[in-house]
Write a protein that binds this DNA or RNA. Sequence first.
DNA 1: ACATTTTTGTAGCGTATGCTACGTTTTTTA
DNA 2: TAAAAAACGTAGCATACGCTACAAAAATGT
Lengths: 165, 165
Amino acid sequence: MVPLEKTEKRRQEIITAAAAHLVAHGFQNSGLRAIAQSAGISDRMIMYYFDTKEDLVAAALEMIGANIAAGMDDAVPQGNATPRQILDALQDALLSEEAQAIMRLWFEIIGLAMRGQQPYEQTAARLLQQSEEQIRAKLRADQKHRAREVLATLEGRVMVELLVE
Amino acid sequence: MVPLEKTEKRRQEIITAAAAHLVAHGFQNSGLRAIAQSAGISDRMIMYYFDTKEDLVAAALEMIGANIAAGMDDAVPQGNATPRQILDALQDALLSEEAQAIMRLWFEIIGLAMRGQQPYEQTAARLLQQSEEQIRAKLRADQKHRAREVLATLEGRVMVELLVE
DNA sequence: ACATTTTTGTAGCGTATGCTACGTTTTTTA
DNA sequence: TAAAAAACGTAGCATACGCTACAAAAATGT
């Protein structure tokens, strides 16, 4: 047992709790102490299981990114779709009541990524590229070159919709 | 002289300096002391001319918003344009070398607005609505109903372009 | 049973933040 | 010119942040 089973399990629990806290509260009130309280431990323990806060946040963002990707994958019926079909299906999914909190966090990540700081920039760039590939996979063969366009339009629509009452 | 000419002039100078600092450095390293240094004064003086830091930031954001709006207005040749023409012209303008820094700040504002905190949410919502109206004014009469769509696509394109290598 | 390692609690350090107390200089007004 | 107001400098407060020192408890291995 090289990475120690029990420790690794505890790490995952903390990552899950941190991800939930971030989705619920955003980055504003997500200091070590607040996250620790949401996880039911002390901030001291976070530093025990993770070298830095950034390590924990990066892990939590990775989990959140995976959730977004999974949600997008579920939202589009199958392959061989038209751009408009994909766009509408994804927009409905990402603006649904359950997805709104995570989408708000997503655009918070975007904002933090804009000056190149880690782990936000890497998370944002990776998830964008991954999303583009997902969309491309769902598009009809003769429309695959429009994946980037669909992605951009989707992001813009969701962003505007979340901000303009 | 009700609001005191000299004081008001000084306030405007500070607002301009603060806006330039925000565009150059983003919100990350924009504490009172850093902004004050960019303005060539002490943080004490900022509190003398403004009740709170938020007051100064709100004024700076208003100035920045006006700059963005003016840039968008200049970018589109005239009225009676097609959605694609407007979209392409605005995308080129907002992604130009000079506009990139301000656009990065814009998406930082978006991120901060996502949890409803002021003055970011108000600034973001107002500028989005204003942009939609500007676009609508440039569109051909039979295409004006597509202003929101053009705006969303524009925002998405710029955002993706700024983040994917 | 003992020694060693793993896990946890308490307290606090160093730094940065927005903001203020207090005093001094400069300008304005009478 | 004296008094009042405006403009500014120095120093520091209170709070929050990420993180650490130190030691005690709990688990583990021999």
